[in-house]
Design a protein around this nucleic acid. Structure first.
Length: 275
RNA sequence: AUUCUGAUCU
């Protein structure tokens, strides 16, 4: 649908009013709005944090005979989360079946992701139980959401707990999942734990790559161990992993931050081979 | 672009 494309484009550009004008245009052109267009409108309102308008819009949908579906509700759930109204989001999930629409995995992922930002693990657990009650299976994506959101918000210990739990249940994680946790420990300055995870990766045949190493280089720089960071870059080589621009930038930044900008300058003038 | 998918600087 061309109309929804235009609406989303305006929305992305921050032009809510123009986006909604598309609805008026459609009306004038005699085009009946369908579920897709309505959901897009809800999405656009939610993205602009106009939650009350979004809720009223959904009521109007019902009045004109367009029944909201799970996508409609998931938009509202996201809207509540964006406004830190997680309780309202959970209430909506609970009420959905009574409105004739069962929540799906996305409904749960959305709320669990927001809970993870604030390390509200007990509530995440509650939702996991609710998911199971709703006959939804906890899958790899569930755990990925938890692990990545927790890692990104500096809660590596909790992320690691979920990873262990998932592994016990037979799920497998690749270097991306592990690297997210490594990076999280690095950002917190807990380099010992970060290195432990890297070692574990080797044991599990999950070989760290340039992204993993660069996280460690950056972490070492942040705690002032620039010499160690330099050694880490050389170890990358030994493990057959070539540092890239991002790796070098991390080290250069570390050198500068630790008052060694002259060495950084020298490094930049050297070729990769002589370094 | 209704949900997950890792690094530096910006």
């Amino acid at each position: 649908q061309a109309f929804t494309c235009v609406m989303v484009s305006y929305s992305r550009a921050g032009k809510l009013r123009n986006s909604l004008q598309v609805l008026n245009m459609m009306q004038k052109a005699g085009v009946e709005p369908n579920l897709l267009v309505c959901n897009t409108a809800v999405h656009v309102l939610v993205m602009a944090n106009r939650m009350e308008k979004a809720l009223r819009f959904v009521e109007r949908m019902r009045l004109v005979g367009i029944t909201p579906d799970v996508v409609t509700y998931n938009c509202l759930i996201k809207g509540y989360c964006n406004l830190h109204r997680v309780e309202d989001a959970i209430d909506l999930i609970v009420e959905m079946p009574f409105k004739g629409c069962s929540p799906d995995k996305v409904s749960y992922y959305t709320v669990m992701g927001f809970l993870c930002k604030d390390k509200r693990i007990a509530e995440v657990r509650d939702l996991m139980d609710k998911m199971k009650d709703g006959k939804l299976v906890l899958d790899q994506v569930t755990y990925n959401v938890l692990i990545h959101t927790l890692s990104k918000h500096q809660h590596p210990d909790e992320a690691l707990k979920f990873l262990r739990e998932a592994e016990e249940r037979g799920f497998q994680f690749d270097k991306v999942g592990y690297s997210a946790i490594v990076d999280s420990f690095c950002k917190k300055g807990d380099m010992d734990r970060a290195k432990e995870i890297v070692n574990e990766m080797f044991q599990k045949g999950c070989i760290p790559d340039v992204v993993t190493y660069t996280s460690v280089v950056n972490g070492l720089c942040r705690v002032g161990e620039v010499d160690q960071a330099k050694k880490m870059l050389q170890q990358m080589y030994k493990h057959g992993c070539k540092p890239n621009t991002v790796s070098y930038t991390a080290l250069l930044h570390g050198l500068c931050r630790n008052g060694n900008s002259s060495e950084a300058r020298e490094m930049m003038n050297m070729s990769e081979e002589e370094w």
